[in-house]
Design a protein around this nucleic acid. Structure first.
Length: 203
DNA sequence: GTTTCGATAGTCT
DNA sequence: GACTATCGAAACA
């Protein structure tokens, strides 16, 4: 497999929305597994009109759990959700400003047999088509929380392939700021997460 | 086909 | 004690 250069810190030290958009099509690498990022969500401090993004964990300020979001860009923020699943985020914005990008889905490109074993699923488009699924498939845990993703076992590489057609929608599975168009995905990919049928109440 | 609901644990109030 | 950026099985239609 040909692999491009590792994305540098300056890639992440930009507005969160830009980082979320530009991560589509990049290659997430962890150990022997790798996947092409096809779906992301931006979690901001504030939107362009200055409204607080209450869906963001960072919206309640700096705590032991959220401090990494306020820290240097190009680091991993991994948290446990619903007591069962871990979700991977990449920290954006210059140091001191909150902002991170949730990686929601990848298209498996390396270590596919490992992913099948970890997930107990055969269908390739179901291996990592959701934030909880991809962390299981790629064995990403809270051990990676706060880790530098510009070097080490967990990195993101440029692809070099054609720029994907990027579509935008509201974020999935949140209650606050539920209508903000901050979900980005590859419009031509079959590997994005299934849209939940469950009803959500918007605040 | 679509929608509902339980599992499960860490963090904050 | 309430909340949570999920998933998949089960219960419907």
């Amino acid at each position: 497999m040909r692999s491009g250069r590792i994305l540098s810190r300056s890639f992440y030290a930009r507005p969160t929305i830009e980082v979320a958009r530009n991560l589509i099509g990049k290659i997430l690498v962890h150990g022997t597994t790798a996947g092409r990022i096809v779906e992301t969500e931006a979690y901001l401090a504030r939107d362009s009109e200055g409204r607080i993004d209450f869906a963001a964990h960072a919206s309640r300020g700096i705590t032991a759990a959220t401090r990494v979001i306020f820290g240097a860009p190009g680091h991993a923020y991994v948290y446990l959700i619903y007591g069962m699943y871990e979700c991977l985020n990449l920290v954006a914005e210059p140091e001191g400003q909150a902002g991170c990008v949730l990686i929601r889905a990848v298209e498996p490109v390396a270590g596919i047999e490992e992913m099948r074993e970890r997930r107990g699923v055969d269908a390739i488009h179901k291996l990592a088509s959701g934030p909880g699924k991809l962390t299981i498939a790629m064995d990403i845990t809270r051990a990676s929380n706060g880790q530098d993703v510009t070097r080490g076992a967990l990195v993101v590489r440029a692809d070099g392939g054609p720029v994907p057609e990027i579509a935008v929608s509201p974020r999935i599975g949140i209650r606050h700021s539920a209508d903000w168009p901050l979900r980005f995905f590859d419009a031509g990919s079959a590997f994005v997460s299934p849209v939940p049928g469950r009803k959500r109440v918007a605040d």
